[in-house]
Amino acid sequence: MFALTDVKKTYQQKGRTVHALAGVTLEIPRGQLVAIQGSTGGGKTTLLQMLGALDRPTSGTVILDGQEISKLGDRKLADVRAKQLGFVFQHYNLIPTLTAQENVEMGLAPLGPKPEERKQRAAEALASVGLADRGDHLPGELSGGQQQRVSIARALAKRPQVLLADEPTGNLDEATRDDIMGLFESLWREGLTIVMVTHDSAVARRAERRLHISGGKLTEK
């Protein structure tokens, strides 16, 4: 699914060069559930951005499903993000004035499906995360765990090849965290490739594969 070869990312900060990624080589086969851990500033979010076609490396190559995305232009990168990747973040990023159903439908806008298809795919995605009966609720009427499920449904409605999650349980209590991880495990068992960044070792231990990044260097745990 992913193949990264000697990926480096440097940038300037207050007159000094920061090596966010220092020669990362990594393969992630289709169908894995991968957790990436590391301290703040260690490079884990930068790595996720490379996998998510949100940034380009300073050098090295990033290949997704046989296509070298590290060399694509902005328009083609946007197309990859829209059609192949689903994103879940620590903050749910839901529009407070829209219902759960409408929030999920909004995530399909870049794909341009007809209104009836958009409505059906959103309803199916909400049902897949256990919220079939919450589609008409506003975010403020939902718990934190339910809001995160809506954001997961928004990502799933695109029918992505990969789900990328950045601290997806960071705002949740322990019980709700375990509930969301149970959902991720179910999606993984159904064949979805999932890569998540987390600071929580209890979350990482439930992944099929654990990676650690520090100082821009990646190791297996």
Rank of each mutant, 00 (worst) to 15 (best):
L94Y: 13
T40D: 13
A53G: 07
L142R: 09
K158R: 14
T46S: 09
P57H: 02
R56Q: 11
A53K: 08
R118D: 14
S128N: 09
T45G: 04
V150Y: 08
S59V: 01
E102N: 15
G43V: 06
L126T: 13
I36F: 04
Q147Y: 06
V129T: 11
D133M: 04
V80D: 07
Q67R: 12
T97N: 15
R134K: 13
R118I: 14
Q147F: 08
R154Y: 11
E116A: 15
R154K: 10
Q49F: 03
D74L: 08
A155C: 06
V150H: 09
G42E: 07
Q37H: 00
T45K: 02
T46L: 04
L126G: 14
V62E: 02
V88R: 00
L51T: 05
D55A: 10
G86W: 12
A123Y: 05
T99V: 13
P113M: 01
A127S: 12
G107V: 12
R118W: 03
G135L: 09
Q146F: 06
G112F: 03
M50Y: 01
D74S: 08
Q148K: 04
Y92F: 15
E141L: 09
G42P: 09
G86V: 11
G42Y: 02
I36A: 00
L156S: 08
K44S: 02
A127K: 12
G52A: 01
G112T: 06
I152D: 08
D65I: 07
